[in-house]
Amino acid sequence: MIGLVISGHLNFATGMQSAMCAIAGQQSKVEFVDFVESMSTEELEVQLRAARDKVESGSGVLFLTDIPGGSPCNRAMNIMMDTPNVELLAGVNLPMIANAAFEREDTTLVELVETLQEIGVSCLQNMRKELEASMKAEPILCEEGGL
């Protein structure tokens, strides 16, 4: 099973933890690391490395962070660069995190990254355009000729 480490600014990680648990249930091999105001970036990296060690089971570790180029992302990138079988996605959202929990058992780390990227892109929707498109759609006729 691929281990997951979710990190972000302030309470991003613990907020995602409560949401993910509501959607996917309690998960093993998942750690959540908040980067709070009282923490230095060095302390953050120490906590991220400890989290990586807790979730590693031989199938790899995927870091999921909030902002590309932010401190959680940058410190996870340090770990990715010096640790084999570690990947990092930044700019993640709840659908990506929840699906990571569901999809991580019967896949490779590279395949999981690709799947989550597709989910992230597909989840970003302009709902006004979606609504307008659905209202313009042709009604579907039943076999008896009714709607």
Rank of each mutant, 00 (worst) to 15 (best):
M1S: 15
M1Y: 05
M1F: 06
G3F: 11
L4W: 00
V5H: 02
S7Y: 07
L10P: 01
L10R: 15
F12V: 10
T14E: 00
T14W: 05
M16N: 11
Q17I: 06
A19R: 05
C21W: 08
I23C: 07
I23F: 11
A24L: 01
G25M: 02
G25L: 04
S28C: 04
K29L: 10
F32G: 07
S38W: 05
S38T: 13
M39F: 00
M39T: 01
S40I: 02
S40Y: 01
S40H: 03
T41A: 14
T41R: 10
E42K: 09
E45G: 12
R49S: 07
A50D: 08
A50M: 07
R52V: 13
D53W: 04
E56W: 06
G58M: 05
S59D: 15
G60L: 10
G60I: 05
L62C: 06
L62Q: 05
L64M: 14
D66R: 03
I67G: 05
S71N: 06
C73V: 02
A76D: 05
M77V: 09
M77H: 03
M77K: 04
M77N: 10
N78Q: 10
D82E: 15
T83D: 03
P84E: 14
N85C: 13
V86R: 10
V86I: 15
V86K: 08
E87Y: 11
A90E: 09
V92M: 02
N93K: 02
L94V: 13
L94G: 03
P95F: 00
M96E: 00
M96R: 06
N99Q: 15
A100Q: 08
F102Y: 13
E103P: 00
E105A: 06
E105I: 07
T107H: 05
T107E: 02
L109Q: 11
V110D: 14
V113W: 01
E114G: 11
T115P: 01
E118Y: 01
C123R: 06
C123Q: 10
Q125T: 11
N126V: 09
M127R: 11
R128L: 09
E130C: 13
A133Y: 01
S134C: 10
S134A: 15
S134P: 00
K136C: 13
A137V: 01
A137S: 14
A137C: 04
E138P: 06
E138C: 06
I140Y: 05
I140G: 04
E143R: 00
E143H: 01
G145S: 02
G145Y: 05
L147G: 00
